[in-house]
């Protein structure tokens, strides 16, 4: 008991600091959480959620009995996995590249330009994608025609074979830049003397990057990865909604776009909440696994 008292007397300020953040989390995040019960209820959006009738797992069985939901589930996993596999390393590589630039002006220019795509809405980006990739009047086809190419280039925007590549590619293009900010900030924390010491030992630029920069970014990378897998089941509603069409929807329809159709458009709150619940649970499992693996590899990392 005395020990606890001593600990508290020494560190009470730390706990006092936590009060606003925790109060916020409890009031604005945990109190509304009773809304999750909608997933297990028949709620039509009128009146008290508490009064709505419990239906058990009915909303979930209903979802999984729908072929379109299963399809969207599969697409979500595939698209998300590809986005993580190819998209997650992109900002790290980009940040290391920007970091390696010596000329200050050039560095600043690159550093600023890469974040810009993040601020342009998907609808406008799609317009530009069409202006570039469009098979009949796009920039690429015009260039090819100029060089004497005859015939039609494949329409990437309307073919099932390439559409997932289009999704992942455009995703990387839009988000990699903004993702560099955290890594660039983390790189500022690395002691420059480490690089000098390595140079004296005769390390080349690649070894310096690998042993010093990447090692210094390790914990940041892990935290970012954990957050990324947590939202794995959200594969980008705005993105898919803006760039997909009915010719490719069978490979692009994700849970969020599916729920938009059946949930919002038809006022089906219970189904939408149940789908959200599934997404959250899977996210939680993925986070716990990633966190566990991270801690096995490096006890100091992870978020919990």
């Amino acid at each position: 008991m005395a020990k606890v008292w001593k600990y508290l007397r020494r560190h009470w300020m730390l706990y006092a600091m936590l009060i606003p953040g925790l109060a916020y989390i409890i009031i604005f995040k945990y109190i509304p959480m009773y809304g999750l019960s909608i997933a297990f209820k028949d709620y039509e959006g009128i009146g008290d959620i508490a009064n709505a009738q419990w239906v058990g797992w009915e909303n979930f069985t209903k979802l999984f009995s729908k072929a379109a939901f299963i399809r969207s589930f599969k697409n979500t996993v595939i698209i998300s996995f590809a986005k993580i596999l190819f998209g997650f390393p992109a900002p790290i590589i980009l940040a290391l590249f920007i970091d390696s630039l010596r000329k200050k002006g050039l560095k600043k220019l690159v550093q600023t330009s890469v974040i810009l795509p993040n601020f342009i809405s998907w609808v406008v980006i799609y317009g530009l994608m069409y202006a570039i990739l469009g098979p009949s009047s796009g920039v690429i086809s015009e260039i090819l025609t100029f060089f004497g190419f005859e015939g039609k280039i494949p329409d990437l925007l309307s073919s099932k074979e390439y559409f997932r590549e289009v999704i992942v590619g455009s995703y990387i293009w839009k988000s990699a830049g903004i993702g560099t900010i955290v890594y660039l900030a983390a790189l500022t924390g690395i002691d420059p003397q480490l690089y000098e010491a390595a140079a004296i030992d005769g390390a080349g630029p690649w070894r310096k990057t690998w042993h010093i920069s990447l090692a210094g970014l390790r914990t940041t990378i892990i935290v970012m990865l954990i957050f990324r897998v947590g939202e794995m089941m959200h594969a980008g509603f705005d993105h898919i909604y803006a760039i997909s069409n009915n010719a490719v929807i069978s490979v692009a329809d994700i849970i969020d776009t599916y729920i938009y159709r059946v949930g919002l458009e038809q006022g089906n709150f219970s189904l939408a909440t149940a789908a959200g619940f599934i997404q959250s649970i899977i996210g939680l499992v993925m986070v716990l696994i990633t966190n566990y693996v991270a801690k096995k590899v490096d006890p100091d990392s992870g978020i919990m």
Partner: peptide
């Protein structure tokens, strides 16, 4: 709370 949220109405 990053993963689970109560939704719009609550």
């Amino acid at each position: 709370t990053m993963l689970f949220s109560g939704g719009t109405i609550p």
